[in-house]
C-alpha cells in the first residue's frame, strides 16, 4: 500500500518509554500528527513535556517504543535523508572557522567541501555573517553563533529542518531578529520545519500550525491552525488576531493547570 503522499512527516500513535530503575517512565503517549510538505509546525509545551524526545525520535536518534514515524512516505529507520538539525546550543567546533563549521555538514554527508563552498558563503551572507567567515566561534556573539549553526543545517539543502528551541538561550531582541530572519528564509523555500519552543508568541509568529503538548507524559492536547497572512512582520504580534491566538493557547494551558491565567 502506498503511503498517503500529502504528509511529509507522519507521526502515528507514537509512544516512547524510558526504562529506569524505579520502573518504566512514559515520556510520550499516543502522539498523532501529520506535517504537510513545506509546512512550518511548532511543538509548544512546558519544559519536561518530552518535546526534545519527540525531535530526537524524528531525527532517528532515539528508537520509538510504539507506533511509528513516516518521512516522505517511508517508515523511519535511522536518521532521514535530507535532514537539517539545529539545537538550543549552537554546538560549533571551537577549532574551526565559521565557514569550516558550516562546511562540516557536507563533510559528514560525504560530499565534496569545494562543491559547497559557494553555497556556504551565500548562506552566511544571507544571515548577515559576511566578514565573519574566517573568525572562530568564540569570537562571535550568541546570536551570530546560532545563525552560523542554522547555516550549517541548511547547507546541503535539507527537505526537513528540525529545530530544538534554537533561540531559547538568546536575549529577547536577538530572538526577534532571528524569528524574522527564519520566516524570511523559510518562505523562499519549500522546507518542512518542525520547531520546538516553549514561547507562545514565538510559536504563533512562526508557524502555520501549533501543536500544544502537555507534560508527564507528553501528549498533544490540541493543534491550532494559525491563519495569519504572510509575510509576517514583527508588528503582527500587536494585532488583535495574534492576541486572539496567544490567548486561546494560554487559556488551553491554563485549563490543564500548566499555566496560571
Amino acid at each position: 500500500m502506498k503511503a498517503n503522499s500529502d504528509a511529509y512527516v507522519r507521526i502515528s500513535h507514537l509512544g516512547k518509554v524510558y526504562p529506569s530503575q524505579r520502573g518504566d517512565v512514559e515520556a510520550l503517549v499516543d502522539l498523532n500528527l501529520d506535517i504537510r510538505p513545506g509546512e512550518f509546525v511548532s511543538v509548544l509545551g512546558p519544559s519536561g513535556c518530552g518535546k526534545s524526545t519527540l525531535l530526537k525520535c524524528i531525527a532517528g536518534l532515539e528508537p520509538v517504543t510504539s507506533g511509528n514515524i513516516q518521512i516522505n512516505g517511508r517508515p523511519l529507520d535511522g536518521p532521514p535523508d535530507r535532514l537539517g538539525v539545529v539545537f538550543q546550543r549552537d554546538v560549533l567546533l571551537d577549532w574551526r572557522t565559521i565557514l569550516n563549521n558550516v562546511l562540516l555538514q557536507a563533510e559528514f554527508l560525504g560530499h565534496k567541501r569545494a562543491a559547497y563552498r559557494d553555497r556556504a558563503l551565500q548562506l552566511l551572507q544571507r544571515f548577515g555573517l559576511q566578514g565573519f567567515e574566517d573568525r572562530h566561534p568564540w569570537e562571535l556573539s550568541g546570536g551570530m553563533r546560532q545563525r552560523a549553526s542554522i547555516c550549517r543545517a541548511l547547507l546541503c539543502d535539507p527537505e526537513l529542518l528540525l529545530m530544538d528551541e534554537p533561540f531559547g538561550a538568546l536575549d529577547a531582541m536577538t530572538r526577534d531578529d532571528l524569528n524574522l530572519e527564519l520566516t524570511r528564509i523559510w518562505q523562499g523555500t519549500n522546507k518542512t520545519v518542525l520547531f520546538i519552543t516553549h514561547s507562545i508568541v514565538e510559536a504563533v509568529f512562526l508557524s502555520d500550525r501549533v501543536a500544544m503538548m502537555s507534560r508527564g507524559p507528553g501528549r498533544f492536547i490540541d493543534v491550532i491552525e494559525i491563519d495569519l497572512p504572510r509575510p509576517r512582520a514583527l508588528s503582527v504580534r500587536e494585532t488583535q488576531e495574534f492576541g486572539h491566538y496567544t490567548q486561546k493557547i494560554r487559556h488551553h494551558f491554563a485549563e490543564l493547570g500548566i499555566l496560571q491565567e
Binding site: K56, A59, G60, L61, P79, L83, V85, F87, R89, V91, L93, Q105, E107, F108, L109, G110
Partner: peptide
C-alpha cells in the same frame, strides 16, 4: 549534542 548532530548527519 555535537555527537547527536554528527549521528543525524550520518557521520
Amino acid at each position: 549534542d555535537m555527537l547527536n548532530l554528527a549521528r543525524a548527519t550520518r557521520a
